[in-house]
Design a protein around this nucleic acid. Structure first.
Length: 516
RNA sequence: GGUCCAUUCGUCUAGUGGUUAGGACGUCAGGUUUUCAUCCUGUUAACAGGGGUUCGAUUCCCCUAUGGACUACCA
């Protein structure tokens, strides 16, 4: 048996320029697992003063989705992940879209054939499908490799004249990698360490499809090599095919990059990896941005998440700095990031914690910033307020909310006189003398011209004390007629904001409706 | 079925051959707020199981279990 030890400690790698790529396939919106992969690549690149490349892997024409490329680029931009080389940015290693150089890939497939490391195969998908089913029925696993290739319809089993004639006739074929028999491949993953696989368990993967396009396995290797990628950081779903990739590198005689396979993001119910199909079924978005095509899906941006909060949350999902710091700016993430501190096991994520992150970031915004954002929401309710007024309002409720859109639910009563009054509160707190007390309070308020809290509060408190009234009894019913319920910020702040006329009006209205 | 990977509180995780196994989110309780929310304080809860190795294993090794990925002319 041959033992192939992939030389994973290339001496000069640390000296080389770090170049990493995020290479999604434009089959739809990018889900948060993909965003996280992009983020880790970006953090790793910037930490090492390297280059972050965006490459579009669109070798499957049947799954190509209009708008997906734009969506991917827009998502990264929203997240603050800056692409150094890519379709929009250009670069010396283009084209950055694989379909733009499909002819070139064919030459590499031919190179492998000429070396004897690949061969033509004429079996149809249907034939192979049938063979697989048959084997399964017999309790075996059908593998297209050394065990079977001699019996199948390909340039290994056929006479040269025969398979050449097939090709000349124009019979469709694929090009398969000729996986050797019984070799141990030793390789290293930056996150998982040493792994050993025997080539006999691997199959002769298709490298080049009958439609003239390479498969992922061929295309990404050629591109990674010519783009001088130093580190491949990708999802764990690729780990099983890494031995194949290393074998292809060996066949070409190229030095492979270093690999790090990231643990997967799991569905919150613990059943399988998160997928694009999970769109709206999880109770939280799985996409960064709204996806407007076909089956639409909501995004974190539209849900009101701040990109830096979203990125912070995602960064900590599967990686940690080893300290107790949890809030990181992008710059801090870059400085703190290291591949070694990426975890090994998949993680489900907690929507509650995501909300908490946004809460933290929202608290750091100024009242002015929040006012501008909230003003947009107010417009949808037909309200047009002055920014200055909104700033003081925001100041009252800011720390109660995690999202700007939640501010309305906290402040609706500032903008409209209550139409209903909480029955529970009436039952519990509305006493025989409540109406008369409120009317008395109204008379006291009438005397005050400056309605700011600093002005009204001491006067009213003094009045309550002088009269010997119960503060709680008065303030609760006062709140009831002003707010309509038992909630909200300080009463004196509220009436200061809505003003004297509205305050007096609400007392009258409340007393007349609740009665007695 | 086969191959590979993984397994610390409900969740994200720290950590070590000898620790009261730490933090965060959540939960619950108390305090503050005369309300609600926030906030503060406290509480809760974990090394999957079984064998080794060892004076001693959560930590190292093996097995089992469980979970996951892959097993397409998709990436």
């Amino acid at each position: 048996m041959h033992i192939f030890v992939h030389n994973f400690n290339r001496f000069n790698h640390s000296m080389e320029q770090v170049r990493v790529r995020f290479a999604p396939s434009p089959t739809g919106p990018l889900h948060i697992g993909g965003v996280r992969t992009a983020l880790y690549n970006y953090l790793f690149a910037k930490k090492n003063k390297g280059t972050f490349i965006l490459r579009i892997e669109d070798t499957d024409q049947s799954r190509y989705t209009e708008g997906a490329e734009e969506y991917i680029m827009d998502s990264l931009r929203w997240c603050g992940i800056i692409v150094d080389e890519g379709i929009r940015e250009g670069g010396k290693f283009g084209p950055y879209r694989q379909s733009d150089k499909k002819a070139a890939f064919r030459e590499f497939a031919d190179t492998l054939i000429n070396k004897g490391d690949a061969y033509y195969a004429f079996d149809t998908s249907e034939q192979l499908e049938a063979l697989r089913r048959e084997s399964e029925k017999a309790g075996n696993t059908f593998i297209y490799n050394f065990a079977n290739r001699g019996k199948l319809n390909n340039s290994v089993s056929l006479k040269e004249a025969d398979w050449k004639e097939k090709i000349e006739r124009g019979e469709p074929y694929v090009i398969r990698y000729k996986m050797p028999h019984n070799e141990e491949i030793h390789f290293n993953d930056l996150i998982r360490g040493q792994i050993v696989v025997n080539t006999s368990t691997l199959d002769d993967k298709v490298l080049f499809k009958s439609d003239g396009m390479p498969t992922y396995h061929l295309a990404h290797i050629v591109d990674d090599h010519y783009m001088e990628i130093s580190h491949v950081i990708r999802g764990e779903e690729w780990l099983p095919s890494l031995p194949l990739h290393l074998m292809i590198y060996r066949s070409f005689g190229w030095e492979p990059p270093l690999y790090a396979h990231l643990p997967l993001l799991l569905k919150p119910d613990g059943k399988g990896k998160l997928s694009k199909r999970d769109g709206d079924t999880m109770g939280f978005p799985v996409f960064p941005l709204f996806w407007p095509y076909g089956e639409t899906a909501k995004g974190y941006r539209e849900e009101g998440y701040y990109p830096d909060a979203f990125v912070n949350m995602l960064a900590l999902l599967g990686w940690n700095p080893g300290t107790e710091q949890e809030i990181f700016s992008m710059q801090e993430l870059i400085e703190a990031f290291s591949i070694e501190r990426v975890g090994k096991s998949g993680s489900k994520f907690d929507p509650e914690k995501a909300k908490w992150f946004n809460h933290q970031y929202l608290q750091k915004k100024t009242n002015n910033q929040l006012s501008m954002e909230f003003r947009e929401i107010l417009r949808t309710h037909g309200k047009h307020e002055d920014i200055v007024d909104l700033e003081s309002l925001i100041g009252m409720v800011k720390e109660r909310v995690s999202f700007v859109k939640d501010i309305w639910a906290q402040t609706d009563f500032f903008f409209k006189t209550p139409e209903t009054y909480d029955q529970e509160v009436i039952k519990k707190r509305w006493k025989e003398d409540s109406a008369s007390l409120l009317l008395e309070l109204k008379e006291e308020l009438k005397k005050i011209d400056d309605f700011s809290a600093g002005s009204t509060e001491p006067v009213i408190k003094a009045w309550i004390e002088k009269k010997g009234y119960n503060t709680g009894a008065i303030m609760t019913v006062f709140r009831l007629v002003i707010v309509g319920a038992s909630r909200g910020p300080h009463m004196f702040d509220i009436i200061g904001w809505i003003g004297k006329a509205e305050t007096l009006n609400r007392i009258d209205r409340g007393v007349s409706i609740i009665g007695k």
